[in-house]
Every structure is written in structure tokens, then in C-alpha cells.
Amino acid sequence: MSTILSALPGLSGEEWQVVALSLKVSTVAIVLDLPLAFALAWLLARGRFPGKVLLDAIVHLPLVLPPVVTGWMLLLGFGSQGPFGKILNDLFGLTLIFRWTGAALAAAIMALPLMVRAIRLSLDGVDRRLENAARTLGAGAWGTFATITLPLALPGVMAAIVLGFARSIGEFGATITFASNIPGETQTLPLAIYTALQIPGSESQVTRLALISVALSLAALVISEVLTRRSGQGKAGHAI
């Protein structure tokens, strides 16, 4: 208990660096994910096409694969010799491996299934009959989407952002495999905790980092829960 209390005041510059990097990596990951997750969620919720089950499975793969396998697949695809890695390097001069951008990609891939699930649930919850009513009132397909579907699904989208963010902050396996554990570049919160655990006598540092981790995750969960509850209005049951 005394270690916890003594750990609370002030973070060192190194610890702040870790937290800032974690926030940067997660923010970029979510910004990357959001349009993709929405498009995938829409396809899975509303689309009718062959191979939908397969797409659903592929989207969910990072959720069930060992993260180290996802990281290894990222190495194959986005490493300096990987097909995508080459294209990104040739076209934009962008290197992902051993860079914070690589950590962001790993975090984005790991958060994607969670975000797709949350958005898809909220889209499934939007009463299609309200959309039909909007059409008879003169709204086109896009107008209906913008004025009915999106506002009613919005709390779910917000929940997806929060959940994805929390997942990104906690991402470990794929990150350490693909982007490695480089202080100041790819050493995010979980990686810093892991590193500190390897050094004898650094319990207070571990405790501080762990507490930050708990606080961030707890905040994310509370926000997500509040948003999900608020999304209850406007769903199928309430339209009757």
C-alpha cells in the first residue's frame, strides 16, 4: 500500500513521454480506423453480397488471433520487404517498421474489430421503418442517412471511438512484434511497464504506470457505458 501512495505524486519526464506517445499512437490509430470501421460496419449491417460471412470473419480475426501472430503478419505485409511496406515507402517515403507510425498501425488493426462491432450494433439498432418514413417525407437516400440513420447511430459510433481508443492504449503483442520496443519511438504504456518489470527495484515505476493505465481504461469504459445507454433512445423499441 505504501508503494502505491508514494507512487502517486508527480510523473518523471520519461513517464510523461511514455504517456504522450501512447496517446499519440492511439489517436492516430482511431483516426485511421473510424472511416474504415464505419464502412465495414455498414457493409456488414446493411450489405447483401457473396462472401459477407468471410469478410465478417476476416474483420474479427485480430480479435481471436494471438496478437504476436497479427504482429508477424504486419511484418510480412508492411516490413521493408513486404508488398505494402514497399508501396508506402516508394510513394510516400513512409516507413512503419520500428517507428511510432508502425505502433499506430498495429494498434489500429487490433482496435478495428471492436470498433466495427460497436458501430454495427448501433446501425442494427436504428429502426429501418424510421428511414422509410423519412423517404416518404421527401428525403433522398443520403438525406435520410444524414438526418436519421447517422444521428440515431451516433452514440454507438462514439462508444466505438472510446472502446477503440482504450484497446489501442493497451495494445502490446502486435506492437512489440511489429514496431519493437524503442523508448521514445514505439515504447507505449504497456511496453514501458513490461520493460520496467524486467529491471529489479523499479516497482514504484511499474505501479505508477499501471495506475495511469487503470485510470485511462476506467475512464474509457465509463464514457463508453454512458454513451451506449444514451443510444437506447431512438432504437427499435422506442419507435412504437
Partner: peptide, 30 residues
């Protein structure tokens, strides 16, 4: 013709008011 081009007023069994809009905004939607 698309539904929005048919100028039909449809009153549904279950009213289908838009739950996220006020009565005024519902009335003025069409």
C-alpha cells in the same frame, strides 16, 4: 419513381415520429 418523388403522405400504424427531433422538427421534416 423514388419514394421521395411521389408526393405521398404516409401515416403509419406506429406513427414513426423521429425520436431525436422535437415535434416541430418532425412536423417540418417533409
Amino acid at each position: 419513381l423514388k419514394p421521395e418523388r411521389r408526393a405521398c403522405g404516409y401515416v403509419f400504424q406506429d406513427s414513426r415520429l423521429f425520436p431525436h427531433r422535437t415535434v416541430r422538427d418532425n412536423l417540418l421534416y417533409g
